[in-house]
């Protein structure tokens, strides 16, 4: 078992080292995600300040502030370089260096993105959320915390499955980055990145909750902050799991087709 795991361990270690080469970069990326949240916090603080009530659509200012911080923290762990990695591999022939290793290509992809996610989760996401929960006097129950973790895991899986599917499209299209960017924008807008979905019309919110979009940002944040009841959180997680199955099937089907085209110089 150890012998089988060794190559993966070595690959993970070197990917970790590679990720830490530009360390100022990593630190700045983390800080900037928070600064991005700060913009929305200040905007909405001004909106609340000049509105006639202390809550808008039932959401208090402190909750809105906490929401944008948590969204930023969750965003950190959902940024994935799968699309660009796969494009480099499939289109430009870098896959040769992966195919000569004694491990599956998909595992290598996961080892490639794991260091980024782990570092950012440990040094970014967790501290920020702990701080927000403590300073905001939010008192999530254990069930809420577990639902939050489940929602994040589902969201990360969905994001990376979509990344894999679009990355795989590199085998057929010249440049998938444009289309993927469009999808990322849609997720940012419809996933609660610019305003909590509670501020959208109910019909829009209800429709969005049937898609895989809100679970990637809005649902985890709203769950830990008590903006949505546990039932909605559970419902969203279940919907997310269904979407994971659908996306995994699409990814598997796509990969089966691509594997047949693969050679050491790409596709």
């Amino acid at each position: 078992m150890n012998e089988w795991l060794k190559p993966y361990g070595s690959l993970l270690k070197i990917n970790f080292k590679n990720t830490t080469v530009y360390r100022a970069d990593m630190a700045l990326s983390t800080v900037l995600t928070l600064v991005s949240s700060l913009v929305f916090i200040l905007v909405w603080s001004a909106v609340y300040y000049f509105s006639s009530s202390t809550a808008i659509n039932g959401v208090a200012l402190i909750t809105t502030i906490a929401y944008f911080l948590v969204i930023g923290a969750v965003d950190l762990v959902e940024m994935s370089s799968l699309v660009s990695n796969m494009q480099n591999d499939l289109q430009y022939g870098n896959i040769a260096t992966s195919l000569i290793r004694p491990m599956s290509y998909v595992s290598q992809l996961i080892m490639g993105i794991a260091p980024d996610m782990v570092i950012l989760f440990c040094f970014g996401t967790v501290p920020i959320i702990v701080l927000v929960v403590l300073l905001g006097n939010f008192a999530p129950s254990i069930v809420t915390v577990l639902l939050f973790i489940a929602a994040i895991l589902v969201g990360v899986s969905i994001f990376n499955l979509i990344g894999f599917i679009f990355g795989g499209l590199s085998a057929y299209l010249t440049n998938v980055w444009g289309v993927y960017s469009a999808v990322s924008w849609i997720f940012a807008i419809a996933g609660g990145g610019i305003a909590p979905l509670a501020f959208f019309p109910h019909a829009v919110t209800n429709a969005l909750l049937l898609t895989p979009i809100p679970i990637t940002a809005y649902v985890p944040a709203a769950t830990i902050l008590g903006m949505i009841p546990s039932s909605i959180a559970i419902q969203s997680i279940v919907v997310g799991l269904v979407w994971i199955v659908i996306l995994a099937l699409i990814a598997w089907f796509e990969w089966t087709k691509i594997s047949k085209k693969l050679n050491a110089v790409g596709v």
Partner: peptide
């Protein structure tokens, strides 16, 4: 690809439009 990229470059404006519309639909605005 060129067309897709040009469309993508409009999303920032779209995002701003939605943000302002949401703010002004549920509050007195700025």
């Amino acid at each position: 690809q060129a067309f897709v990229w040009m469309v993508v470059s409009t999303f920032s404006t779209l995002s701003g439009l939605i943000s302002i519309s949401v703010i002004y639909s549920i509050s007195g605005g700025l």
